[in-house]
Design a binder for these strands. Sequence first.
DNA 1: AGATTATGTGTAAACGTTTACATTTCTAAC
DNA 2: GTTAGAAATGTAAACGTTTACACATAATCT
Lengths: 333, 333
Amino acid sequence: MSTTIKEVANRARVSTATVSRVLNNSGPVDDDTRRLVREAARELRYVPNAIGRSLSTRKSDAIGLLLPDLYGEFFSEVIRGADQYAQQNKYHLLVSSSHNNRNEIEDALQMMRGRVDGLIVMSPHIEADTLDENLPRSMPVVLMNCFIENDSFDSLNIDNYSGAYQMVMHLVEHGHKRIAMIKGPERNYDARERWRGYNDAIREGHALAIPSLEMKGNFSEASGYDAVRTLLNQNTKPTAIFAANDSMAIGALSALRDSGIRVPEEIALAGFDDIPIAHYLTPSLTSVHIDISKLGGMAIEKLIHSIRLKNEHKKERVLLPTSVVIRESCGNH
Amino acid sequence: MSTTIKEVANRARVSTATVSRVLNNSGPVDDDTRRLVREAARELRYVPNAIGRSLSTRKSDAIGLLLPDLYGEFFSEVIRGADQYAQQNKYHLLVSSSHNNRNEIEDALQMMRGRVDGLIVMSPHIEADTLDENLPRSMPVVLMNCFIENDSFDSLNIDNYSGAYQMVMHLVEHGHKRIAMIKGPERNYDARERWRGYNDAIREGHALAIPSLEMKGNFSEASGYDAVRTLLNQNTKPTAIFAANDSMAIGALSALRDSGIRVPEEIALAGFDDIPIAHYLTPSLTSVHIDISKLGGMAIEKLIHSIRLKNEHKKERVLLPTSVVIRESCGNH
DNA sequence: AGATTATGTGTAAACGTTTACATTTCTAAC
DNA sequence: GTTAGAAATGTAAACGTTTACACATAATCT
């Protein structure tokens, strides 16, 4: 179908080796020959076949990105940051989503095998064992937001704990004693860490640790709404609510509004993630900011580093700092 | 580094052909041999190399997605829709962004050559000629939001014209005579179409066509802000503003607020795209809705169709319908 | 001039699969 | 006990590159 190096070689009356040398500037070639080859290639509209090349050189200049799914701001920002950094370093991105069960991970991994020089895996759902036994040892891997004790991989995590801790401490410092939390999915690593931060801040800040103020949630807007509805039907009412992500905070805001409760006057509210919408809400939402695209970029950076150094590269864990962004919803703007 | 089919063959004491047959269920194999091979593969943790396979079968089960950049809601939704449909059909996605100039397009195309069975190209910036001469004829291509007269490609466009037309007509029908428009980038195809819809609606609805109410913009929030600031300094003030996208509408809303103008009471406002934020603004933003993920999905659908039928596939152009979503900002909620 | 080195080019193997074809072995019908 | 056919397996070429090696030829140094 499309032109091969052989056809170019024939037309230029040289060997394929010479054509390759001309096109890659590898090895010496006579100026006349060079011109001849260039012309032949142009005339035939020759474009080297990346696959043939890959097979031969055993590298692909591509990086695989395995994500749990592609919903929402978070993932698009990861992709953007990753792609930007990758592109600067002449790498391309092979994106694969929704590997939430064992089979799909294996599928995705199989598809990647040979096609990429390294892998970035994001898998916040706790399934460390499966992950560990499926990940290829033959190529560099960087783990993002994964819960894995194993020290045999590079890993990159958001500092969820400290973000949540600081946020809740901020509320405590402004006099809140009864601070509710709307938690994320139980088996989600990020969610757990945020919960841990909340707990420690409550204790260390000498606020009240009231179990009935810890609501279940699943990161969805609806679950935030429901949590607040339940919360308001209880005897012990909070003076502040900390949602484990912004989507749930948005749901919470709707529920509070529907119940005629003023935010922040009657109940203060804070979220996590600082998605763009946070800024546009009324009241604007206090949240924990994460530089998500940076997360993606750093993952690529680490991976490329590890690809280049291959063996003598030391695995490490990195925590990406978070920062509290104070807006109207917490009452201390 | 990683196990090859040959090593599996050796261990199972059969030929590579047999291993291949077992693993792909192609051709007859004795049950005992089959078991032997399976076991050897498992023990060696063998995973077929996708590249070797591709080279041999001349297909990759991958689709290339060329995007102008990866900013904002729009692209992430396209990717999501595309990935979802692709995954259902056992295809994977190779994403490449920011090919805004000729060289980058060529680069991206070169990277894709051989790696993908088909290509989806999105390039709203008007550069039809470059595109046309760089696109490979050897594989199926679907164009998204591209301005190209050429009938030799499948193409998929948002019905920008009709969306804008209906939106503006809605405003006209509710009594607005002086309707301003904040336009998008001049050389952007989508932006042009939206402008065309605005114009026709103004004329056919017998509203006033006032050149000074047509403001320049570049799809950014800041440009929306600036446009309104300029608009308010003019003699002829509009009773309604139609922004060519939601980002500019958001900027416009800020500017109106900063100028102490109530929306929609004094000036009505409408946007285009219906990004998620639109719903959360105060007042919530009337906008033209596009099912972006569907756009991505449909592109993949068309492409896969065209890959399967290859030659006897008839090229066609499809327009994705848009719909007006009435919210508070236009005053007719 | 002869020895050495540099330059230019070709040959062929290698990368990891699949698969057309060839070969062997088995099954069953006569 | 042939023989025809099917079933099981192996052989080797093909896919499109790159590159180690070999081999000329030309340039440079004693």
